[in-house]
């Protein structure tokens, strides 16, 4: 099965990359864009696991490796 993990900066952390993208969009006239947060996407191809195991293992992977909990948060979803 396929899992997608999305890692992005916590709201409290300044995201200069996101800011730069926002400024670029504004300079191109897309003024309706209010804010941009940049993140990373990981697509994991894994053995089929029951939901309850995923609920434990995926946050574990995200917390331990994919994200740095001091500055980043994550979300995850089952793709297929």
């Amino acid at each position: 099965m396929k899992i997608r993990v999305l890692v992005s900066f916590k709201e409290s952390v300044l995201d200069p990359q996101g800011q730069t993208v926002k400024n670029a969009l504004h300079s191109l006239g897309y003024d309706f864009v209010k804010d941009v947060r940049q993140g990373k996407v990981f697509e994991l191809e894994i053995d089929d696991l029951p939901r309850e195991q995923l609920e434990v293992k995926i946050p574990e992977i995200a917390d331990k490796v994919l994200a740095n909990p001091i500055i980043e948060k994550f979300e995850w979803e089952i793709l297929e």
């Binding site: 952390v13 300044l14 200069p16 990359q17 730069t20 740095n68 001091i70 500055i71």
Partner: peptide
């Protein structure tokens, strides 16, 4: 703590 990208990217 942690490191972020330099302020001028």
């Amino acid at each position: 703590g942690a490191m972020l990208r330099n302020k001028n990217l």
